[in-house]
């Protein structure tokens, strides 16, 4: 479903958003974010799919347009993190919304991984109070 350039954008963004190590060991790639993203896109209505694609294109080109830097996937890891940082705190509302939309989609995909979900504490328990006094 994703083109090869879109796959590279998702993979690069997911590892910048969720790098390996820290409080949760898995990176975005380790957690299967790209595969999940593919599935998510396939299940979306066409209009929303088009909007997600637009979002990815925007992430790729925003460094060029707004920060006079190389497109997102051409950047080194550190620069990608700096790009996300710049988007997240930008004084331009639209850039912050772009960051938040990307982060929301990637977080859904990251937290869909059972192991990640378990580390966050999200373990289903249909009857948590059963047997308690």
């Amino acid at each position: 479903m994703l083109t090869s350039i879109e796959q590279r954008i998702v993979a690069a963004a997911s590892d910048a958003m969720f790098p390996r190590g820290g409080a949760i060991e898995q990176s975005g790639s380790d957690a299967g974010v790209l595969d999940y993203f593919e599935k998510m896109l396939a299940e979306m209505p066409p209009k929303n799919r088009a909007l997600v694609r637009l979002l990815l294109a925007f992430i790729q080109l925003s460094p060029l347009v707004f920060f006079f830097k190389a497109p997102f996937t051409w950047q080194r890891d550190d620069d990608r993190v700096a790009t996300l940082e710049a988007l997240s705190v930008s004084s331009i509302y639209f850039l912050r919304v772009t960051f938040q939309s990307l982060r929301a989609l990637l977080s859904i995909a990251y937290l869909a991984n059972d192991d990640v979900a378990r580390q966050v504490g999200a373990v289903p328990n249909l009857s948590p109070f059963e047997g308690r006094a």
Binding site: P19, A23, I24, A122
Partner: peptide
Amino acid sequence: GPPAVLSVRFPGFGNQLKSHLVAFD
């Protein structure tokens, strides 16, 4: 709500975001 929904309000990304995610409990 599910953590994936609630965490849209968390600040930042990377290790900062991860440290908030594991603090859910």
